[in-house]
Simulated scan of single mutants.
Amino acid sequence: MPKSIFWSRTDTAGSEHVLLDDGNGLAARGTLLAVDPIPWTARYQVTTAPDWSTTRVEVEAEGPGWLRRVTLERATGRWRVTTAEQGDLDAALVAAGHPRAGLPGTDDPDRLADALDVDLSRSPLFNALPFHRLGMATQAADMPRRIIVAWVLLPGLEVVAAEQIYTGLGPGRVRFASGTFTADIDVDADGYVVRYPGLAERIDPR
Rank of each mutant, 00 (worst) to 15 (best):
A150M: 07
G97A: 00
R133Q: 09
T55P: 00
L26C: 03
L154H: 03
F131A: 03
E73Q: 12
P205A: 13
P144T: 09
A141I: 05
A84L: 10
L19F: 12
P155H: 04
V187Q: 02
G63E: 06
R122M: 11
A61K: 03
V81G: 09
L26G: 03
V174E: 12
Y44C: 02
G65E: 05
G23M: 08
M136S: 04
P155A: 05
V118L: 09
W7H: 08
D204C: 06
T10E: 15
T71D: 08
P50L: 04
L20D: 05
R173P: 06
A115L: 05
E60Y: 03
A61M: 09
T10C: 04
R202G: 03
A34L: 02
G14P: 01
A95T: 10
L157I: 08
R56G: 00
L112E: 01
L134I: 05
R68T: 06
R195M: 01
W52S: 00
F6W: 15
A113M: 08
T106M: 07
G14I: 04
L134P: 11
I185E: 06
Y166R: 04
G168Y: 01
L169T: 07
T82H: 10
A200D: 01
L19T: 12
D117F: 09
R173Y: 07
V149G: 03
G135K: 06
R195V: 11
P197E: 03
A200H: 01
Y166P: 00
R175E: 11
E163I: 07
T54P: 05
G97E: 05
V159N: 00
P37W: 00
T10W: 13
L20K: 10
T180R: 15
G135T: 07
P155I: 09
A84M: 07
I165H: 05
G156I: 06
A28E: 10
V174Q: 13
W66Q: 02
A42I: 04
G168W: 09
A27Q: 15
T182A: 14
A137I: 14
Q45T: 13
G63V: 06
S8I: 15
A115Q: 02
L72K: 09
T180L: 13
E163Q: 09
A113P: 00
D21C: 07
W79E: 15
